[in-house]
Amino acid sequence: MAAGGAGGNSGGKTYSFKVVLLGEGYKLIIPPLPLQASFLTKKLNITGKRVNLAIWDTAGQERFHALGPIYYRDSNGAILVYDITDEDSFQKVKNWVKELRKMLGNEICLCIVGNKIDLDKDRHVSVEEAESYAESVGAKHYHTSAKLNKGIEELFLDLCKRMMETAQAEERLKGNGASQSASSRRGVQIVDDEPQATPAGGCCSSG
């Protein structure tokens, strides 16, 4: 039901999403890339639609805390990673959730990720506590192990699907033919692949 709604020509669309990473996500989730600073792009193909992810790592340090908002703005999703052996890291996740909801409302897809499940014997954050917390704030919970490369791909796939659903719902709300007036900078950018046949009218008003 979701696919048809996108203003008729839902054929060759590419969705671009921005996802912010909070917590220890970067080192654990993103494979090291030479010469690229804390930033990663990921291309996925989901139910025949192309999705480009731009993944932004953000600093968790207190000294840069005040600067967080400029990282979060315009993001479609957030991945909040805690270490299941470290209760403090889970507390931090809770703070970030509050901040993100305050800043970006309910449109942002939140993923709370319990990492290091290979160290389950040292677990300090219980599965039940984490999952019920996630549910209470409208987030989804995931279990990963960066070391064993477990659960990471699923996390991204699932997040993409959710972001696409949000985007499509937003499109439907805007009504037909709204794709050209990408309303604000916020939210998804959807690019039609085919060059427009007639460049008349709207092409100069897209600023």
Binding site: Q36, F64, A66, R185
Partner: peptide, 25 residues
């Protein structure tokens, strides 16, 4: 450009802005 805003250019500019704001403070 909007197209660059969420890409690497946007990320680097945002990081630069954060660093500058930190230095100012």
């Amino acid at each position: 450009h909007e197209g660059y805003l969420i890409g690497e250019e946007g990320y680097c500019l945002t990081s630069m802005q954060s660093a500058l704001a930190y230095v100012e403070s």
